[in-house]
Design a protein around this nucleic acid. Structure first.
Lengths: 202, 202
DNA sequence: TACTTTAGGTTAACACTGTTAACCCTCGGA
DNA sequence: TCCGAGGGTTAACAGTGTTAACCTAAAGTA
């Protein structure tokens, strides 16, 4: 085991777990599976993580971080408020579709399956929503969006995007619906709903 | 066991499973748990169901049926196209929030955890979306909604509602957001997006 | 009446799961 | 020389879905 010392065992466990998550899904992610793949016993993992949940929480950290940088990049890539919000929406959906292994443990797994994500880390995850809220706030300030509570609007956008990601990647959407078209519609509608918020039928 | 003969064992298994699902969640729904609760051995369940998945599929049938009647009721309860669509949206969300035990197995559980829902039953589930598509179609015909592909629009509405239900009932939405307000916004925006679909920024 | 089949259940077992307790070995330091 | 500790192991427990083998009482049937 000495030839691997440049990579800490903790790091190796995390990488193997993520890889296993990608290839076989959370349902088949077991301590013994991880351990076998790197030539250690399952109980060795407990020297570096308190529990399986603890391990998964560490992976969630990575996912939150990655999503955060993607959203920040999107936020910086466009100038007008609506373009910025739309690009951020697309960034969120892309993350969810391209990294389902992260998305599943971050936002899909029922709290019954996995212990509550610790409160102090929860804040960092919430930061990602606040980035969107700021973009919305900017749109309001520049008069492009209706004057609406930014956090409520951000959460509404989130639910729309989350719905698209989960239904598409669990393959529950009818094959006859073009995924790209659905994603496109969702992102454009999120933006346009900021412009028309509260308008009544004529 | 003869005093229970008025209620078939199959029926009793289903009821107990649903009750267990409600009280303890899918994570703790086990064959032995079900069996213990009704005084049989776990393997007896296999006399009436091929597998645990098969049992859950039978529960999904019930859920699809129940959601269907709720949507149909909503569909019949209002007259104007926008009111009808909005009432149906609220009916969908209500179902998801009030019967999380059904909603979880129907639309949340990853296909990794549970075998694919059989194709022929899938059609019945899709019928529920078609009810919404018809309501949208009516709105288009009467000139209230923009001329859009009804199935695409119905799926977009579905993703929005599904996102609200799952994020709310997995308690991932910030406590400072009023759930009712979020649901309200979502339903109203689904309807208004049918009216403004495709309009560009000015 | 005697024999066989079948419906409806049981127990024991297998291969898994997360987790804990006990153990083992090899270093570093006093 | 002894001691402690770091880093790992094996054995075991209680739980999971599922299968194979068995058992028993009722129902046909010759």
């Amino acid at each position: 085991m000495s030839e691997k010392q440049e990579k800490s065992l903790r790091r190796e466990i995390l990488d193997t777990a993520r890889q296993l998550l990608t290839t076989t899904g959370y349902a088949r992610l077991s301590m013994r599976n991880i351990a076998n793949k790197i030539g250690y016993s399952a109980t060795s993992i407990y020297l570096y993580f308190d529990s399986k949940d603890d391990l998964v929480h560490a992976l969630i950290d990575e996912g939150v971080e990655l999503l955060g940088t993607r959203l920040a990049e999107a936020n910086a890539s466009a100038t007008t408020p609506d373009a910025r919000l739309e690009v951020m929406c697309r960034a969120y959906v892309s993350f969810g579709m391209e990294r389902p292994e992260y998305y599943e443990i971050m936002y899909v797994l029922h709290p019954e399956y996995i212990k509550r994500y610790p409160a102090e880390k929860y804040r960092k995850a919430r930061r990602n929503l606040e980035i969107m809220a700021v973009a919305i706030q900017d749109g309001i300030a520049s008069g492009v969006f209706k004057d609406v509570e930014p956090m409520l609007a951000a959460n509404l956008a989130w639910t729309q995007l989350h719905g698209v990601v989960t239904l598409l990647s669990s393959e529950r959407v009818d094959k006859r619906i073009d995924p790209e078209e659905l994603i496109d519609s969702a992102c454009r509608h999120v933006v346009s709903s900021m412009r028309t918020w509260g308008e009544q039928a004529n």
